[in-house]
Amino acid sequence: MPKPRRSNDWGFPRWRGYEEGREAATVRLCDRHGCEEKGDCPAPKSPNTPERWYFCQKHAAEYNSKWDYFEGLDKAEKAARTKSEQSENAGYAEAQHYGWGGSGDGSRSADEMRALDILELESDADFATVKKAWRVKAKAVHPDVRPGDKEAADQFQRYQVAYEVLKAAEERREWKG
């Protein structure tokens, strides 16, 4: 008589995952030559074909940075595809900024929130307040006011980048609104 097999259930069948067993699971490796990471990010081998490469996240990002979605299409086909995709995805674009949504209600990106923290402002600050705070802080640490002070120059650079991020966001909102 064969020895009874030990169960994975422990008396509670719902604790077990679907199709879970003791055998080794097969893992697809990244299709990039020499990479031993798990290949779980599909990428098309060429435009308009169902064939896929499977890359790890690092190599998928590298592959997608050079990807041209419209490669091989003439100007008319490119325009038609752009129009159809914009109409299909228009609801998503509209949902980002409603007329009643102002800053501080989740409409700011993480970069904008970091920029507001650098300028020591609240998340619902309007652009006039941002500009005023930036001017005050930038004047205090400007390289012309404090020549030779590397720390002040670095702080001025941080304020400048924060202001540029918030200015670009404000211009996007004005353009969409």
Rank of each mutant, 00 (worst) to 15 (best):
M1I: 07
S7A: 09
W10F: 15
G11Q: 09
G21I: 10
T26A: 09
R28M: 05
C30T: 01
R32V: 01
E36D: 15
E37N: 13
D40P: 06
P42V: 00
P44W: 00
K45T: 00
K45V: 00
K45D: 02
S46W: 03
S46N: 05
P47I: 00
R52V: 01
R52S: 01
W53M: 01
C56Y: 01
A61K: 10
Y63N: 00
S65F: 07
W67Y: 08
L73F: 10
D74R: 04
K75W: 08
R81N: 09
S87V: 15
Y92F: 14
A93I: 11
E94K: 14
H97I: 15
Y98F: 13
G104Y: 00
S107Y: 04
A110R: 01
D111F: 01
E112R: 00
E112K: 00
M113C: 00
R114T: 06
A115V: 04
E120H: 13
E120N: 14
L121T: 04
D124P: 06
A125K: 03
K131R: 13
R135L: 14
R135Y: 09
K139E: 15
H142P: 04
D144S: 10
D154I: 09
Q157S: 15
R158P: 04
R158T: 04
Q160W: 07
A169Q: 03
E171V: 07
E171Y: 06
R173W: 10
K176Y: 11
